[in-house]
């Protein structure tokens, strides 16, 4: 294990650690990788980190990076607006599945389609965590949530949204699109780094969805949490790169 994986990223804000996420939550892992990538690319002072409302809001003071809280679903346009006005900044829009795929889906679709030079990082934990565990666009068929107490009925409520697949289908050739998981941190880091490099180079829109854990609302113990992430979620959500530069593409 290298030093960078054991110590805190330089871009982390020490005063706000330990962080406020629930025990076992996937957000901390995603933000750790993001911090490492910011360090490695040396963009801490050029980056602007926008937080959606929901659990992602708790990341608002996570980094020593210029950070701004926005509204639920509106992080993508705020970050788009910043980067359009000042293209020398590196815009990161951080959100959950509800913010990205439900209330803010029009923004995600259109920012992707316009090829806005921003990085959208979306955490998929199959539910609305902050509001108490309601069904999200990504809730699995049959999954029990507060608003699907008898399990998600796909005839009534549709199937889980496949975000990266959708974004890959509508985005430009210079976009970067991937789905990672907190169960494979080295792969996740590779994806996030490539996404960020794509934005730093001003090449195109970058989007990474991360499969993440939510034991609090899943009401799972450690073993079941991991099983849900690695077995159940992976049945629907394929991990890998959906759009990348041909030179970087790997099978």
């Amino acid at each position: 294990m290298s030093a960078s994986e054991t110590t805190m990223p330089k871009s982390w804000r020490l005063e706000t650690k330990p962080h406020k996420f629930c025990p076992g939550c996937g957000h901390g892992l995603v933000l750790k990788v993001l911090g490492q990538v910011v360090d490695e690319l040396d963009i801490q002072e050029r980056a602007v980190f926008g937080c959606d409302i929901g659990c992602s809001l708790l990341a608002w003071d996570f980094f020593n990076i210029d950070s701004v809280q926005t509204h639920h679903g509106r992080t993508t346009p705020v970050i788009t607006g910043i980067v359009r006005a000042n293209p020398s900044l590196i815009g990161i829009a951080y959100m959950g599945d509800g913010g990205g795929y439900a209330i803010g889906s029009q923004h995600l679709v259109n920012a992707a389609n316009r090829n806005d030079k921003i990085f959208v990082l979306l955490v998929n934990n199959t539910n609305y965590g902050m509001t108490g565990g309601q069904m999200a666009p990504t809730t699995l068929p049959g999954q029990i949530t507060e608003t699907t107490p008898y399990g998600r009925d796909v005839d009534e409520t549709g199937s889980p949204t496949l975000g990266p697949e959708m974004v890959a289908a509508i985005s430009s050739e210079t976009a970067y699109v991937a789905r990672g998981t907190v169960s494979n941190m080295s792969k996740l880091k590779k994806f996030i780094k490539r996404a960020m490099e794509n934005v730093v180079a001003g090449r195109g829109f970058s989007f990474v969805e991360v499969l993440a854990t939510c034991p609090t609302n899943w009401r799972t113990n450690a073993r079941d949490t991991w099983k849900f992430l690695d077995e159940d979620m992976k049945k629907y959500f394929k991990v890998g790169e959906f759009k990348t530069l041909p030179t970087e593409r790997e099978e």
Binding site: T70, P77, V78, G81, V83, R84
Partner: peptide, 26 residues
């Protein structure tokens, strides 16, 4: 000067906020 046509007025308003955050008269 610059212009961005957005997907709706929510986005027009929030991108305007982005412009302001970046220090521009938006």
């Amino acid at each position: 000067r610059k212009f961005l046509q957005t997907e709706d007025e929510l986005s027009a308003g929030f991108t305007t906020i982005g412009g302001v955050l970046a220090g521009r008269r938006a």
